[in-house]
Amino acid sequence: MKTWHFIGILLPLLGCSHGSPAQNEAQIQKTLNKPIITNESPEPIQEMAVPKPIQKQEKQQQQQKSKALMNVPLIKQNPELKYGCEVTSLAMMLKYAGADTDKMKLFNEIKKDNDPLKRSATGDILSWGNPAEGFVGDMTGKHAGYAVFDKPMIDLINGYLPGRAVNLTGKDFDSVLDHVSAGYPAVVWTTGDYRLPDRWESWTHGREVINTPLDLHAVVLVGFNETTVYLNDPLTGRKQVPVNKTRFIESWKALQSRAVSYR
């Protein structure tokens, strides 16, 4: 993928701070085995096992996999956490799970990668932290901030719900939807307008090269149906935002299919 370098004036726009945006039941008929006529005494006629009709509960379970919608509480990241879309989304999910926490507690508890931001004379980012290891930059917005990825979030979930964290990163989106249909919201990574990212940047972190879009965002996936996903967005402050499912999946895959939840 082609990598673009952006000058320092774009730094205030890093991370999440910039975003806006029947089954037909089969007919069942009983069938009986007919005895074969021989010289010997025929064996008793035995009735074949007949499948039972689909029960109402099974129908509901099938319908559940095609749609879901949860009343997850909405929490806004601003004004305290300009770049805090991940921990604010996590606060929504954990509160729905019954955990006693809030975005500021999670802000203090999330692991940080404190490698300083270094820029060239022209403002290009030369080196910075690794969001896979901890939050990069300043989440409050007093200085440039960026993001955090799934593993530090999983550690935080297990801190509140021991042994219950589920990392759905790298799985197909149907697996994420199955998890949501079971009654568990998920924090998912996308972009500010839920479209494909178009502002890629790269920098070094030790011997690593971090390639990642600047227009990254995290939201809570709270429901879906055949054509739509529903999101709680901590930046826009909108609850159960309907977004075209196909469009959203494209942006989610571009962000490396990251998603975390619990069970």
Rank of each mutant, 00 (worst) to 15 (best):
Q23R: 14
N232C: 08
H217Y: 08
L10P: 02
L117A: 12
S261Q: 03
K239Y: 12
G192C: 06
G183N: 05
S251F: 02
M139G: 02
I157P: 01
L32N: 15
P185M: 00
Q60C: 06
V72D: 03
L90F: 06
N232W: 10
G98Q: 01
M93Q: 09
M70E: 07
E208M: 10
P213K: 02
Y160I: 00
R258H: 04
A165I: 01
E40M: 05
E25T: 11
N225D: 15
K142G: 12
R164K: 13
Y160L: 00
N114D: 14
W200M: 10
A68Y: 06
K151C: 03
P213A: 07
A182S: 14
V166C: 00
A259N: 03
K111E: 09
I9Q: 14
G163I: 02
A91W: 05
D113F: 04
K76V: 15
P42Q: 14
P185Q: 00
K76Y: 11
N211T: 13
Y230W: 09
K76W: 11
N244H: 08
H179T: 05
N108E: 10
K56I: 13
N167C: 04
V50I: 15
S20N: 14
D233E: 09
V187I: 09
H217L: 08
G237K: 05
R207V: 14
T122Y: 13
Q62G: 13
M104D: 05
Q23F: 11
P152G: 05
K95S: 13
L214Y: 06
Q64V: 04
E58P: 00
G141P: 00
L10Q: 12
V219G: 06
K67M: 09
M139H: 05
E109G: 04
G98T: 01
A68G: 10
L216A: 13
C16I: 05
I110R: 01
K34T: 15
Y184A: 07
V188P: 03
I28V: 15
F6A: 09
K95V: 10
S202L: 02
G170H: 00
G8H: 11
A186Q: 01
P79W: 03
E58L: 07
Q60N: 11
I110G: 01
F173D: 04
W4A: 15
K171Y: 11
Q240F: 11
